[in-house]
Design a binder for these strands. Structure first.
Lengths: 208, 208
DNA sequence: ATGAAATGCGAGCGATTGCTCGCATCCAAA
DNA sequence: TTTGGATGCGAGCAATCGCTCGCATTTCAT
């Protein structure tokens, strides 16, 4: 268990510096990926010296960890909005919309993070929590699906949830990468894709 | 244009060594990714010294390039099987099956290559050709879709083809990663997902 | 005002890694 | 059998990069 070390007292200026460095790191990581991003480049982007950077972060991993926590808390907030069990009885198109919208928004607000934390060049320690959250999404979707169609075997519920998540993830990248003007088009296609896959299985609540 | 340098004469033994090194590189790259894979590790895996490795490959990039060419020619062969324009008038489930099967097979036969060449830690030079082939796939699918439903606007044809490709790519990873025993299940879901998305648009040949 | 602590700098250390170099050995053509 | 080139080795070079260290400056509580 990683115990909190008695982190030194920060002045307001120091806290600002930390955010400034973390912001710069988000840029550099997004552009270059974790492995190719150098700490010196992050420091330069933040307009500080390498020494200053290491005044606030123990090492490269710690910088990424800060970003990981930012992303994770944003994700968790989105999950609360997206996976309300009460949605289970809604018409399928609306159900999809309620789930998809918050997840898209959080990823548009944090561009690059999804790619960064699913990349393989990042230390296991940092990608693991995000992957775990991703697994949790499958679980949350499974709950909604199971609540909607109780007669569906648990194994099939799981399979359907995994596939729906994969479809969502793939098209999410396209939506985020698209210029803002085209996003609605791709979001529409995303909805159609999910609807097309899910309708035969869980189109009507209560049926098997 | 990259001109062939007058590569030195190889003995049969040398050719074998090259394949042996390339095979080892495929393993190491698949395990560690391009950036984290060291040439010394590749040499060790191949059971040769670093000097021997560089007897046959100019640099790290050249090793990956050999693998890229392997993958690309395998992909091209699969594309020939998968994107026959004559498929356009088949019933949709069969059309999907004809396209999907060769693409799945080639990726099962070359595990790790898809992930390797779509990773961002690889030099642009090497990922670009594979990305270009991927773009070509969208074009090939567009042709089939357009041939099937001539009344569909070109822009919409393109959008549908992109989305279908994305759905395929996402579930392909799951199929390849799954143990052989479960593959048929995931392939079935992949077919259902594509069918669900495509049926409303191009379900019947000739309709708009 | 003053001292202690926080902030800041940047040259450069140590480890890693792609790659080289000098030299030994193997092979095939003459 | 001889000989030139292909194959093979592995210590170590050079460049990169994460990170440190010594020291200067700023901030803040007293």
């Amino acid at each position: 268990m990683p115990e909190e070390q008695p982190q030194r007292k920060r002045q307001a200026r120091g806290v600002r510096r930390m955010e400034q460095i973390a912001d710069a790191a988000a840029d550099v990581f997004a552009e270059a990926g974790y492995a190719k991003a150098t700490t010196n480049a992050i420091a330069a982007r933040a307009g500080v010296s390498p020494g200053t950077l290491y005044q606030f972060f123990a090492n490269k991993e710690a910088i990424a960890e800060t970003l990981a926590q930012r992303y994770q808390s944003a994700l968790r907030a989105a999950h609360e909005k997206a996976f309300d069990p009460g949605f289970a009885s809604l018409p399928l198109p609306e159900l999809i919309d309620r789930m998809v919208t918050p997840m898209i928004d959080v990823n548009i607000a944090n561009p690059g993070f999804k790619a960064l934390f699913s990349a393989t060049d990042m230390p296991e320690r940092l990608s693991a929590p995000t992957r775990k959250l991703h697994q949790a999404v499958v679980g949350r979707i499974s709950e909604v699906v199971q609540a909607r169609v109780p007669a569906l075997p648990a194994e099939r519920v799981r399979t359907v949830s995994v596939v729906a998540t994969q479809i969502f993830g793939a098209l999410l990248s396209t939506v985020v990468a698209a210029p803002a003007a085209e996003r609605e088009i791709w979001i529409g296609e995303l909805r159609e894709a999910l609807l097309g896959y899910l309708d035969p299985v869980i189109g009507e609540p209560g049926t098997a």
